[in-house]
């Protein structure tokens, strides 16, 4: 074990020295829920917080990957480095996945300032993969200036990206339904920047107008999302998008909003970590003392109900007495 600990520590050192293999290995480790994950993330965390995180979301085939490819050109011509996390869906049946986002980005494969990683959702339903946040931390500590997270192709309600990114771009395509779609809750609410891609197709002006009308109904807000038109296959409008993202970043920084957003994120992380530790501890105790299969059998046969069984289970491991003094 000691040898393994040293080895792992070396991996973080290599990461901080800019070793791409180390970055790749570390993402695998966090993604696979390896035993060493938490101790490694502890070492990585002090080196994070420097990257600006951009989320790109939209329907399947809206052109997210192609737009990321174009955006990368802008980022690189400004002399900045970039990390990309491209998420594609994991099959609920086989657990397998086709990760095909980077096909559009292969022109950047040999640029050492760009690191692209594809991830399967692995059961997560919010548009991101289970370990997106940890993978961002790895690329952040790796020293990437901008980290772009491309979500899976989303529908109306997969909005986890807004909890993860500093700036969120929502991509739409022309002819996406009537104006009622624009006032629905969910994805239409999370954009810091709207992009109508495939703006060379008929109906793009109307889509832009409808979104602008929706935004104008919101009243005075300190940040009013711009509605931009792009054609990602030829790069039209991508410079404007890059400028809008920089403007949004400036707004976040100058208004103090960035700090606020990041505090919320840290609070959520902290809560999740506490819950994780409590959960792990409880299940360890349960596994040691209780035969779960018997309980499941009983509940299935309707000899017991799951509500009281859960309470009894916690009583058996002295959860209430030891930790709380009394029941919750």
């Amino acid at each position: 074990m000691a040898i393994r600990g040293v080895l792992m520590h070396q991996l973080v050192k290599d990461l901080l020295n800019g070793n791409r293999r180390a970055a790749a290995r570390l993402i695998t480790i966090v993604e696979n829920e390896d035993d060493q994950k938490r101790s490694l993330l502890k070492e990585i965390y002090p080196h994070t917080g420097n990257a600006f995180i951009v989320g790109i979301t939209g329907a399947p085939g809206a052109g997210k990957s192609s737009l990321v490819d174009r955006l990368l050109q802008q980022i690189r011509s400004d002399g900045l480095t970039a990390g990309i996390i491209a998420v594609d869906p994991t099959s609920p049946f086989s657990g397998g996945a086709i990760l095909g986002d980077r096909i559009r980005m292969q022109d950047h494969a040999l640029d050492s300032a760009v690191f692209i990683r594809s991830m399967g959702t692995r059961g997560s339903l919010g548009g991101l993969s289970r370990s997106t946040r940890e993978a961002i931390q790895v690329l952040d500590a790796f020293g990437k200036d901008i980290i772009i997270v491309e979500t899976v192709g989303v529908g109306q309600s997969e909005v986890d990206i807004v909890k993860t990114a500093d700036s969120t771009v929502v991509m739409l395509t022309p002819a996406g339904g009537d104006s009622v779609q624009t006032i629905k809750a969910g994805i239409m609410e999370i954009a810091d920047v709207f992009v109508i891609n495939k703006a060379d197709l008929p109906g793009s002006d109307r889509s832009a107008t409808e979104i602008n009308m929706m935004l104008d109904m919101n009243g005075e807000k300190p940040w009013r999302p711009p509605v931009l038109s792009t054609v990602s296959i030829n790069g039209e409008g991508v410079n404007e998008l890059w400028l809008a993202l920089q403007e949004h970043r400036q707004y976040l920084e100058e208004s103090g909003k960035l700090l606020e957003v990041r505090k919320q994120r840290v609070r959520r992380e902290l809560t999740e970590q506490v819950e994780y530790l409590v959960k792990t501890r409880i299940w360890e105790d349960v596994r040691d003392t209780i035969e779960l299969d018997d309980l499941v059998e009983k509940i299935t046969k309707r000899l017991q109900d799951p509500y009281s069984a859960a309470g009894e289970l916690l009583e058996k491991i002295n959860f209430f007495k030891e930790d709380q003094g009394e029941g919750v």
């Binding site: 099959s91 397998g96 594809s118 399967g120």
Partner: peptide, 30 residues
Amino acid sequence: RALRDAGMEVIYTGLHQTPEQVVETALQED
């Protein structure tokens, strides 16, 4: 597709890759 159905995560590069691109992609995707 078959590997996907066998539960694997398959990264596809698309066409016309140079050996350098293939190797660098293999590295980044671990």
